[in-house]
Amino acid sequence: MTSATPAPASGVPVGPGLSMFDPLFIGIDEFGQPVYLDVIYRNILAAGEPGGGKSGLLNNIAGTAALCDNTRLVLFDAKLVELGPWRDIADEFVGLDIDHGLNVLRRLLVVASNRYAWLLAHRRRKLAPTDGLSVIVTIIDELAMFSTVLGTKAQQEEFSTLLRGLVSLGRACGMPVVAATQRPSWDIIPASLRDLFGYRAAFRCTSLNSSNIILGQGWAEQGYTASDISPTNQGAAYLLAEGGVPRRIKAAYLTDADIYNIADYAAWIRRPAGARLDLGLAA
């Protein structure tokens, strides 16, 4: 499986202008300056109470990834509607079937380990834009559904274990994970999994403790607590990027119509080559 030439699969990206290797716009900070995230080499955990704006952030990332060149989407959404608009352009869309989710995670892990073998064979440690390998963005909405609600106990544990593997492996081989859940406490997802996420976005919480669980112990005491975000200010969050201090941001908002427009456009520019040819002949 350590083939030297990554073969581009048919039917994936044709003409999008964006790249996942570029910083991704997610909103503005409290000084009105744009906030960009390097999603490619980072894992992001978004958490906060329902209606806080997590899905807005996820849709921003999914929308950008959808318009990016050589990028594949793997989506997990037990609520179906949040990431559902992207289901047609996603390589995998997992809804309520945890078995399907487990299979997808296993496949992703195999890809990740193969990529590392490929990198090793090329005397490298990290994927670069010039490698030609696709970026596989895994986005999970309502992580708690897969780790605590759906399937049997054993399946839930396996899901957490496989995801931990993907989160810890995916970073350098172009397979970032973006996950959202309401409260990432130890009974929802293992602390060992939570702590692997380098970037944290804490949307509104009801207590200091919840905010600390998302951002890390001690931040609330220093005044960085997502419980002081107004409930009416959806999309406002504390963003903790690696090594820094949390900063207040407001995630960009996409209306439902915007999301479907972007999804349609992304599907259009990602249409298989055969379809383009047919269309060209028909036109």
Binding site: G17, L18, F25, G27, I28, N60, G63, T64, L67, G235, K250, A251, A252, Y253, L254, D258, N261, I262, Y265, A266, W268
Partner: peptide, 10 residues
Amino acid sequence: VNSPLVDQID
């Protein structure tokens, strides 16, 4: 905050 993605699409 509006997303610049909206301007990217047709």
